[in-house]
Simulated assay, not measured.
Amino acid sequence: MDDVKIGEILLPGDEETQQKQEEKVRRRFWPTFRKAARQIPFSRDVAAAYYCAIDRETPLRVRGILLAALGYFVLPIDAVPDVLAVIGFTDDIAVLTTAFALINRHIKERHYEEADRVLADDEKPA
Rank of each mutant, 00 (worst) to 15 (best):
V62G: 02
Y50P: 02
P81F: 12
S43T: 02
D45K: 11
D78Y: 03
L67H: 03
A47C: 15
D82W: 05
L70F: 04
A94V: 03
A53D: 09
D92W: 06
T98S: 15
A49Q: 03
V83Q: 07
R61Q: 12
Y50G: 01
E57M: 04
A69C: 07
V95L: 10
D55L: 11
E57D: 10
L67K: 01
F42D: 13
L96I: 15
A49G: 09
I65T: 14
R61L: 09
L96P: 04
A48H: 12
V62S: 07
L84T: 01
T98N: 14
Y51E: 00
A48Q: 08
G71P: 09
L66Y: 03
V86T: 10
T58F: 08
P41D: 14
L96S: 08
A85N: 12
Y50F: 15
A49D: 05
I93N: 02
D45E: 14
V95S: 02
Y50W: 08
F42S: 11
R44T: 13
R63V: 01
Y72D: 02
T98A: 15
F73C: 01
D55K: 04
C52F: 05
A94M: 07
R44V: 12
F42L: 10
L66A: 03
L70W: 01
L75M: 13
L75S: 15
F89N: 04
I77L: 13
G64M: 04
L75W: 03
A49M: 15
A79V: 07
V80Y: 08
A68P: 05
T90G: 08
D91Y: 06
V83I: 14
A53C: 13
D91M: 00
L84F: 14
L84K: 05
V86Q: 14
L96Q: 05
C52N: 05
V46H: 05
P76G: 10
V86M: 13
I40T: 03
A49E: 09
R63Q: 09
D78L: 06
I87P: 11
A53R: 08
L67P: 06
I93Q: 07
A79Q: 04
P59K: 09
T90R: 05
V86I: 14
Y51F: 15
L60Y: 00
I40P: 05
V80R: 02
A49R: 07
R63P: 08
A68D: 00
G64E: 07
T97R: 11
R63N: 02
P59G: 05
V80I: 15
I65G: 08
S43I: 02
R61C: 05
D91F: 05
V74H: 08
P76S: 09
P59C: 07
D82H: 07
G88V: 02
G71T: 09
G88S: 03
A53Q: 08
A47S: 14
V80H: 03
T97W: 11
F89Y: 14
R56M: 06
A49L: 13
L60K: 10
I65N: 03
L67W: 03
V95A: 07
T90D: 11
R44A: 13
P81D: 13
T97E: 11
T58E: 07
A85L: 12
V74G: 01
F73R: 07
A48L: 13
E57I: 03
E57S: 14
I93D: 01
V83M: 12
A79P: 00
I87S: 02
